[in-house]
């Protein structure tokens, strides 16, 4: 297993946000985490990325203990985050945002090559490379956020709500890119409100409710459960 969480609990102050969660992601897999607002999906992703530290349980990546790694070294292990709401460095240019993506030692030497690869994936970003990231449209910002994460050359890409606030045509474009990234052999943990899209693309999925995992399996098996169909697809 590339990533393995066992009985993981994370909270803010005294209040637990996720409790006793066990998930696993294999190399090259797309795993979706779905669930209602406030279920703890972002907490899970942010904990894996090092923004939040686990309070209990184990979190292992490529055989090593992530809880023992300093927050700024987690990226160096091969984990990159596309955060919810994109969180670009708004006052910095598109190119500078991408450069920050390749800040970690293992990626810095390959920065120029990485930038070329991102521009090949998102040709329109090349035209806007000197523009302040904060002045881009939502879809373009999402592309910079994905590009910034790819610059870190991750083995595991954490995608937190990539379709949030985007027009349907742009959402399709983003998911095309997610497929292309997956085709390069990068494992993806996808948190997504758009359950139909997430289940269409995922190899496996977990359903998170009130901080606990209530169902897990391949998309077809989850969709066979009427409770999940009703709750998340309204069918």
């Amino acid at each position: 297993m590339l990533l393995e969480a066992q009985n993981l609990s994370v909270g803010y102050g005294g209040a637990p946000a996720i409790t006793d969660i066990s998930i696993a992601i294999d190399a090259g897999e797309i795993v979706a985490v779905i669930g209602p607002n406030g279920a703890g999906k972002s907490t899970l992703v942010n904990c894996i990325a090092g923004l939040l530290r686990p309070q209990a349980g184990r979190l292992r990546f490529a055989g090593g203990d992530l809880a023992a790694v300093a927050a700024h070294r987690i990226c160096g292990q091969g984990i990159a985050l596309v955060p919810e709401g994109r969180r670009l460095f708004a006052g910095m240019s598109v190119q500078e945002n991408l450069e920050i993506g390749a800040y970690r030692r293992g990626a810095r030497q390959m920065q120029l090559e990485g930038i070329e690869r991102v521009y090949a994936l998102f040709p329109m970003l090349r035209l806007r490379r000197q523009q302040m990231a904060g002045t881009l449209s939502g879809g373009q910002q999402q592309m910079v956020a994905i590009g910034r994460a790819l610059m870190a050359r991750p083995r595991l890409l954490l995608l937190d709500e990539p379709s949030l606030g985007l027009a349907p045509s742009v959402v399709e474009e983003v998911f095309e890119v997610v497929r292309a990234i997956h085709a390069q052999g990068i494992a993806i943990l996808l948190v997504e409100q758009n359950v139909a899209l997430a289940l269409a693309i995922a190899d496996r999925a977990y359903v998170l409710e009130e901080g606990r995992i209530v169902a897990a399996g391949v998309p077809a098996a989850l969709l066979a459960q009427s409770r999940i169909r009703e709750a998340y697809l309204g069918l």
Partner: peptide, 9 residues
């Protein structure tokens, strides 16, 4: 926090 997630100390 995001800068930290990209390896900046």
């Amino acid at each position: 926090p995001i800068a930290t997630a990209f390896g900046i100390n």
